[in-house]
Design a protein around this nucleic acid. Structure first.
Lengths: 189, 189
DNA sequence: AATTCTAACTAACAAGCGTTAGTTTTGTTA
DNA sequence: TAACAAAACTAACGCTTGTTAGTTAGAATT
């Protein structure tokens, strides 16, 4: 029953444009033109440009945080947890690829409060991931490479997945998961 | 004997600022202030903001192209070539990490001619890398995963290496190379 | 039928943008 | 020391930016 509100429409449109040119290169007039209205009309639905950016970024950042919380709470092997993290990234990438562009490239344009919240979430996320990898090494499940190198290698692949997903037409999610898990995991076990 | 020219100084300063906030978020006045001069004075040395961006990006893009050409010309195994590509990325990352931020995030703000040149170089680069991986699979040196997944996985790690390198204080290049080659290669052989 | 709400509009603002023209200072060479 | 070139300066330009104020048309509610 819940129809998409005009506000959500603005945010979706803005995310698409931010993905193409970046937050600073997209004007309120650009967003309005893409919706066939005038820039001033946007302000009937949103409080400003900043609000659009923070809604785009924080919403998806919270999804990552929630997903990671679930993974950490699981009672399973480290490898299984890494697999779950990979699947988490793929699911979010498939559903919010535009938002991920903003999260990756425009987070520094968030203002004070939102910026702090975002940076905190990202640090916590990385720390949780790092701990999973370390536990895997201690348990002998993961090869004893430098944990930071493993973390970085996997995370940078997952973080830029949205670029790849946008380039090759939307492909089957389950196949993507299987291949991704293979390439990223097989190397470290 | 060749002292760094004022023009090079501008480009280096601009690259640093572009790395922090992105091309569109940095004004000519920002660049000038960082050099303790006035914005108009910049135009004694450069033709405009666009020129700064294209010098930053194209110079390092050409370095990649040249490096890849050397690797392709080598008479060695596919795995050895992949290793050489990894080392190429690390060397460039260590010496031009600010420029890599612009190359990754601001390339779309290049104007017509430079944009075309850049996109062409990047496509060729990827195609050369893809071919190396395919040859490796045919020769039985590399596991028969989908080549595109291997390419993407390695390349996205190498492309965001500059972020990692900037975060952890400048670390020993040779150790970095060894660890990186281990993690990225061991998984696919 | 009168009222209220929603969402568009026009017009304008102050600030910041890249850039240009013309001038002055600084440092080197003849 | 006079002449010249390099590199800074001041002042201003036309344009774009995010945003505000006030208004209007149509739909929903009373």
């Amino acid at each position: 029953m819940k129809a998409i509100s005009r506000k959500e429409e603005i945010i979706t449109t803005a995310a698409r444009l931010f993905n193409e040119k970046g937050y600073k290169a997209v004007s309120m007039r650009d967003i309005a033109t893409a919706m066939d209205i005038k820039a001033a009309s946007l302000y009937n639905h949103i409080n400003g440009k900043q609000e659009i950016l923070s809604e785009i970024i924080l919403k998806v950042a919270e999804e990552f945080t929630k997903g990671m919380t679930n993974v950490v709470a699981e009672n399973s092997s480290a490898i299984k947890k890494v697999e779950k993290v990979i699947e988490l990234h793929i699911d979010i990438t498939v559903n919010h690829s535009d938002a991920l562009a903003a999260l990756n490239n425009d987070w520094m344009h968030l203002e004070e409060t939102d910026l702090k919240a975002f940076v905190k979430m990202r640090e916590d996320y990385e720390e949780n991931f790092r701990r999973i990898i370390k536990q895997g090494i201690e348990a002998g499940e993961i090869k004893p490479y430098h944990p930071e190198v493993i973390l970085f290698s996997i995370l940078s692949t997952l973080r830029t997945l949205y670029l790849w997903y946008q380039k090759r037409g939307k492909l089957d999610v389950n196949i993507l998961k299987k291949d991704m898990v293979s390439v990223l995991i097989k190397g470290i076990v």
